[in-house]
Design a protein around this nucleic acid. Sequence first.
DNA 1: TTGTAAGCGTTATCAA
DNA 2: TTGATAACGCTTACAA
Lengths: 347, 347
Amino acid sequence: MSSITVQKVAKLAGVSAATVSRCLHSPHLVREATLQKVRQVMRENNYIYNIMAADFSRRRSSAVGVIIPTPAASAFAQTLVGIQEATFERNAPLFVGSTHYRPELERGLLRQCLEHRLGGVLMAGFDPSNADLVRELQANGIACVILWEKPDDPLLHCVGIDNYQSVRNALDYLFSIGHRRIAAVLGPLETSNRTRHRLQAYRDALESRGIPYDPELVLFKGPFLLPGKEAVTRLLSLREAPTAIFAGSDLTAVSIISELKGRGVRVPEDISICGFDDNEVSAYLTPPLTSVRVPSAKMGRLGMSFLLELPADFDRLPPRRLLLDTEFVIRRSCAPPVDGTGAPFQS
Amino acid sequence: MSSITVQKVAKLAGVSAATVSRCLHSPHLVREATLQKVRQVMRENNYIYNIMAADFSRRRSSAVGVIIPTPAASAFAQTLVGIQEATFERNAPLFVGSTHYRPELERGLLRQCLEHRLGGVLMAGFDPSNADLVRELQANGIACVILWEKPDDPLLHCVGIDNYQSVRNALDYLFSIGHRRIAAVLGPLETSNRTRHRLQAYRDALESRGIPYDPELVLFKGPFLLPGKEAVTRLLSLREAPTAIFAGSDLTAVSIISELKGRGVRVPEDISICGFDDNEVSAYLTPPLTSVRVPSAKMGRLGMSFLLELPADFDRLPPRRLLLDTEFVIRRSCAPPVDGTGAPFQS
DNA sequence: TTGTAAGCGTTATCAA
DNA sequence: TTGATAACGCTTACAA
């Protein structure tokens, strides 16, 4: 299978390897006749460019890495779509890895990016315990752009959303229509800055209204299960059930609503639900879901643009840090509580 | 930034480069003391393995490629999850590209896989016009496994589903509860074998019942829009509206239902809807959606296993071709038509 | 506009 | 159990 190489093409075309390389990358530097000749030889011999060799020679991969929690969450899938859009013209190959919210997997992925000498890495969040590796990537000339949040480290590039403010907005709304006892079903706490910021927003929102924080009202789910059943069971068995539930994702909200309905609890008449992400089907649910719309694709698109525009000495420039707006979308899954005092019913 | 190489580690540890390489890949061939020494030097100097160089030297990339229409479709996202599961232990880096149902993009992606000398490629379907390139990949030692369908070419490996039979099942069900005038809203026809097979199933199902094929009842959508509005407009303006609609995906079904509801048409009382894919939220919709459950993740998992197990001379072996079962899931979006004769109402 | 030649950092073969 | 050495196929100064 000994494939045809630049050397062989050169020989067959009666030119040097350098010229063949130029035909590939800077054809304008080559005399037209030479160009034609070389291209013809390539065609006739079915020459296949060897990216591995080229990348190796340049000491830097032409590929870019993307690290997301999981493609199964449609919000991250959208980010992936945005990334692909940005990468479209100069179609850089894309390495995609998923952490499944496990810091050690994320670490392995980062390590791979390093060993591959990738052109850059996009991360939809990252575990603080891996900050050292991220720094090492940057130190080795591999730029990282953090998506979906604004990392504490001010030296990191990012295109994020304000998770804190987004949740404050949602809670302000729930407060404004009369709720006082609000539960939250959030993502994994330990491995996600996003969840930490969201939790803080929840606590501050309560505090700003003089409502004491009740840990029984806050549930953290693992990454993969639709936790409706368990969440609802726990929340309804409380001495005083919540009148509203803030869910960390629309999928979570859906499973909570389903479980609630199964128990004869009406949404939003008995309990209000608010989601997060604004999944594409959320407007079509019954009731249509009130949610926080996140510019998932846009984050990906902009993050990749950042990466592609970054100069070689990006390390010496101030990092680009962008925070995109979210939009609170009011639909019909939230309503005032039956009375101002608490649970509409006893379970 | 001149990084530390195997050569330098060798020098520092007082051994040869070959020995250092052995420490990396076959430590059992190295004397314990040597091993320790080398590892220590690596640690102390923060050695970073250079995958590019290694792959280049081996003349084959350690990475694997995945080509899907789009990660935005949750069914393909699930396939991606399955692939990552299979790839977990030997965590081969994953190149992910999306065709967005455009043959020329698919072609570009395939070309990239070739130029990268990837270890193998998984494709969630492929456009027949690119069959030549797929063959060229195989000829160059890059195995391809087709997912989501059984390609006509009997030499291609695959882990698919029987799109034809799946649709026959769905239509048989609709017939069995009394429908005779059934519309179909399918994916892009030209670029997808899947859609072709599904259309054939639709036509054969009608024919087997002696029902003439009415092209007005069959709509093909572009890849990206939720086509509910247009589809419903066209179907309801027919002289005789359908009593049931088969949708090529649950997302399509959702948008059709939404549009129908907006016009005061009840589902399933006035019109029945059947989806395809069994999206994770479909059971939670109102009404819960009857759909064809597809083993999306399993296809990915098995396909990747195939790829990883394939011997170097896979070309000389008979291809592995597997067809996975789909499951018809009956929920509540389909009901008998109001009468046996046709439209329940005039629009 | 073209050619020469020196890398790039690993792996693999063969011999010791 | 280890070492020498020759690839691997491209890019890139630099020179012509």
